[in-house]
Design a protein around this nucleic acid. Structure first.
Lengths: 362, 362
DNA sequence: GTGAAAGCGCTAACAG
DNA sequence: CTGTTAGCGCTTTCAC
């Protein structure tokens, strides 16, 4: 074995670095106030079993000195870290392109701040990362719980995380919705709502551009499209369904494939794809929404990029993050079982691309 | 004081939650192999002072049992956490819209994975968050160091962080480049390169759309624009400089303001603004690049949204994140001073919008 | 209401 | 090369 190589990432920071002026400890405050360490600990932790007089004296000593308890020591003694993790598996390919994620992160960060939690972030790049990260998450005791972004079903990292005993909640409904807690939006209902809107507007040949194959989200949104058809006694035509991949280019290509089937409206399973599809339509000289109407999904700020404001389904992304944190806290405090499963509502935002506003004045 | 309220976020997780089956400890492994705890610790940390025989026996015991050292205990004993923080101050408003951030985060996460560090994420929402987060970062000993995204100069959170003794490196050159470590791209040089490209192509009335006022980045990119003019013995016309805010709409509005001054080319300080500006130009019936040429800045994937591929400056965003982590490690290991300051190179990516390809065939 | 005392699981001298 | 011995700074019974 090579010299210095270590099993668990040794603490190699050199000895002669920064001189650490020792931080204050509970003991210091105790001494200063003339009470025991336990008492200071009690006021720090808000225990009611402290006399008002003593509490006030301790409090002002803390205030004066700027004392702050040491996290590692607290964790070691209490077996809790007040830190949760956010895991983005390698199978989630859209992290760098989908504006969904920054908003989600904002929601999660907000939930953490609200609950005085810290957030640790695990972006898995490759198998190698995975091997190193998994035990750190599951066995080092560093985290009280984890939020897991659901990617492809059957992701090994996710499965191992779920199998470990660390409390975890998934963002997005996982494939087998067994005994695992998750927070998601109702993709089926939302897609049905979008499609119904198009049906209600009187379109006859409503197509759809789906997301990336294999994703649960893709499946659910297509399911919603089908559901709306069924609700109206219509039958779905296969030629009106084109496979995309959630990207702008994917939407563009899918639309090109759809064009020969002469759709008069399209429900795209993401705004990005809708943008690409609109681009494809305009390129052929057709008009939006006059010739082909569109409804997207997400309501990302990006619609300002298009000439035609996009009618779309708004997801409560930030709320999703906040809720996920709350659910995770519940799991941590009250046990993992039974699984907590929440589905948040979406909202149809009507703009120009669906033609509703034009039709109103016809 | 209200019952139960606590000064430092008490560990209120209820007692009766999940039953924690005790994780293995060094002691367990030691007993199993028949050596002392120290020896196990040595092999775990890669110390060379262990006989091959003992090491192998310990190693296989670890392998068998799946032992993983407890993070809190290690941190408490070693005074190191192997965790760094990423702080996004509240003054950074573009976090949710700018595709720059996911890529930056990827780079940082990659740097962390490479160096077996964990990443903790602090997104500051409001003043309240700030007050709670600051001591956690600076005084709880939870972090070995922090990466700070530079926002507006004079951000109080940033200043307090810098003033604290926790090693920190800024992402983006801060206002007063005193004794603080940072990693940045050379915005001045890059903007000059972009402008020079337009000058070289023979444009006569080259305008610019700047970023949000007050930002260092904005200042630097405008500086670069000026520098290119100076290098060519040209004088800058004030009417050819329009103020944007890094957003698509901002670019659109700025372009509208620029139009009366009849520019024949524009350097936009961000791709998003370039997209908006192009939209404004096309709306008036003018052509890009025939009537007005464009160069953007960032090289975000978004250029696929525009009909005309955007000539732009590519920033090595991921590399920036990786480098920042490396610099922070250096600081942690070898002391904060002197400050380490790195400026990464950018690259001009020539596409259609600048007109170079058209001109080639004229 | 308060203090004493026993760890939490690990690292790091210090002997040998 | 290996074991012994102190802690790291805090929480948490258990007495009083």
């Amino acid at each position: 074995m090579i010299f210095g190589s270590a099993l668990f990432l040794p603490f190699l920071w050199s000895q002669y670095g920064v001189i650490l002026m020792a931080e204050l400890t509970l003991e210091d405050i105790a001494k200063q106030v003339g009470v025991s360490r336990s008492t200071v600990s009690r006021v720090v932790n808000g225990s009611p079993n402290v006399s008002d007089d003593v509490r006030n004296r301790v409090l002002s000593a803390i205030q004066e000195t700027g004392f702050h308890p040491n996290a590692a020591a607290r964790s070691l003694a209490s077996q809790r870290t007040r830190m949760i993790g956010l895991v983005i598996p390698g199978s989630v390919k859209t992290f760098f392109t989908d504006p969904f994620f920054p908003q989600l992160i904002q929601g999660i960060a907000c939930g953490c701040n609200n609950n005085d939690l810290s957030l640790s972030f695990f972006l898995v790049g490759n198998k190698d990362d995975e091997k190193k990260i998994l035990p750190r998450i599951a066995k080092s005791g560093m985290l009280d719980g984890v939020l897991i972004q659901s990617g492809l079903p059957g992701d090994p990292l996710v499965e191992q995380l779920i199998a470990s005993r660390i409390p975890s909640v998934m963002l997005g409904r996982p494939e087998g919705l067994n005994e695992i807690s998750f927070v998601d939006v109702d993709n089926i209902e939302a897609a049905a709502k979008a499609t119904q809107h198009l049906i209600g507007l009187g379109y006859e040949r409503i197509g759809t551009i789906t997301g990336k194959k294999g994703n649960v989200v893709t499946h659910d949104r297509l399911e919603g499209y089908r559901k709306a058809f069924a609700n109206n006694g219509r039958t779905v035509e296969k030629v009106l369904i084109a496979g995309g991949d959630f990207s702008e280019i994917g939407g563009y290509d899918a639309m090109k494939a759809l064009l020969p089937s002469k759709p008069d409206a399209v429900f795209a399973a993401s705004d990005l794809m809708a943008a690409g599809a609109v681009r494809a339509v305009l390129e052929t000289g057709l008009r939006v929404p006059e010739d082909i109407a569109f409804v997207g999904f997400d309501d990302i700020p990006l619609e300002s990029m298009m000439k035609i404001p996009l009618t779309t389904i708004r997801q409560p992304i930030k709320k999703l993050g906040i809720k996920a944190v709350e659910v995770l806290i519940d799991l941590i405090e009250n046990g993992k079982s039974p699984a907590r499963q929440f589905v948040l509502e979406t909202e149809l935002v009507v703009r120009e691309s669906c033609g509703a506003k034009i039709k109103r004045f016809e």
